[in-house]
């Protein structure tokens, strides 16, 4: 099977969104094709890098500021 045809399954394979049959096709292909094997490794590394991205936190006063804004909005609604 040609690399191009395998490619969409290679991508879905990363998300474990392939059928058992597609999985077999992908695995058979990458055993025989170094270029696709390399591609799969790089894709997996890309996904890994994304999933390992550091979680950030907003400023400490985030909730206080939000509460203040909500209070203001409610009080202006009551006035109106």
């Amino acid at each position: 099977m040609r690399c191009q045809e395998v490619y969409k399954w290679l991508q879905a394979y990363l998300d474990t969104a392939v059928t058992a049959e597609e999985e077999r096709i992908v695995e058979r292909h990458i055993r025989a094709c170094p270029a696709c094997r390399q591609r799969l490794i790089e894709l997996a590394r890309t996904v890994n890098a994304l999933e390992e991205a550091e979680d950030l936190t907003p400023r400490q006063d985030f909730t206080v500021r939000l509460r203040e804004r909500l209070k203001q909005e409610k009080s202006s609604e009551n006035r109106g």
Binding site: Q11, L14, R39, E42, L43, R45, T46, V47, A49, L50
Partner: peptide, 10 residues
């Protein structure tokens, strides 16, 4: 998107 990222990060 992943293909673009793969090429860049590679």
């Amino acid at each position: 998107a992943r293909e673009i990222l793969r090429r860049k990060l590679a």
